[in-house]
């Protein structure tokens, strides 16, 4: 995860990638429900290389306690089994002594291949609604400033986002947002909450000298706070609240937009 580029950026790309992935198959399509990226490139047969060997080698070098490994597996399983999701996201990014905050509501239906973002903060994007439809390969963006719904091709919009974020070179990382199994993970803290719920604080040694502090509770196993440090310096924090896993979102709930003129680009 390229938190160096900003948590908000990462989130948008994550969303874009989610709905761009044609292989986000439903449970009927794939029993394992792995996330794969379809980058609209012609598929070629895998050439034999030593990637798997190197991967195994790297994995063997990772030290992780049994308890930490169990937590990591639970998180991974929670994400893998998702059909749809609704969550409030608060992203605070620290840029040159300034805190930049993005608040949004995210709804994703893997089953219907739809995603919706409602921006609440900052004011520069407040009221904007973005609906991405992977089946139709379109993005609808409601623009309050013109009271118009702009329709764009999903592929073009994805490229815009990726170019803006400069991470188009390594899209495969998008699939591992909540998969910490490839990193060294320590449990720093375990707090027993009311109702028998345990809150874990994980330290994840991420690549490029980044350290992620991930908070997750064992009632959902969905991370509710991720802080990113570069060395000793806090880069930003993403808080996830009002998480609804598999709430059964309907197509109408995700795609409804204000009554406005539609302009195709």
């Amino acid at each position: 995860m390229k938190y160096r580029l900003g948590l908000s950026a990462a989130l948008i790309v994550f969303l874009t990638a989610l709905i761009s992935c044609s292989a986000l198959a439903s449970a009927e399509d794939s029993p394992t429900k792995t996330i794969q990226l379809n980058l609209n490139q012609p598929q070629v047969e895998e050439e034999p290389d030593n990637f798997s060997e190197k991967y195994q080698q790297v994995m063997q070098e990772i030290t992780i306690s049994e308890e930490a490994a169990a937590v990591v597996d639970q998180i991974k399983a929670a994400v893998e089994d998702l059909k749809d999701l609704a969550v409030d996201i608060n992203i605070t990014e620290i840029r040159e002594r300034r805190n930049e905050e993005v608040v949004l509501h995210l709804m994703v239906s893997i089953e219907h291949k739809l995603a919706r973002i409602e921006f609440n903060e900052p004011s520069a994007v407040r009221g904007m609604i973005l609906v991405a439809n992977q089946a139709e390969m379109q993005v609808h963006i409601f623009q309050p400033v013109t009271n118009v719904i702009v329709v764009r091709g999903l592929e073009d919009a994805s490229k815009e986002a990726l170019v803006a974020l400069s991470i188009g070179q390594d899209l495969t990382q998008l699939t591992s947002y909540f998969d910490f199994s490839q990193y060294n993970v320590d449990i720093l803290e375990k707090v027993e909450l009311e109702g028998g719920v345990t809150d874990y604080l994980l330290q994840v040694d991420a690549p490029e000298e980044e350290i992620w502090y991930v908070r997750v509770r064992d009632d959902s196993w969905f991370p509710h706070e991720i802080s990113v440090y570069e060395g000793e310096v806090l880069q930003g924090t993403m808080r996830l609240s009002n998480v609804e896993l598999d709430p059964g979102l309907s197509v109408e709930e995700i795609t409804c937009l204000p009554d406005a003129k539609i302009e195709k680009m």
Partner: peptide
Amino acid sequence: TVKPMGLLGY
């Protein structure tokens, strides 16, 4: 003519 400017602009 319309030209996109980033994800949220044109």
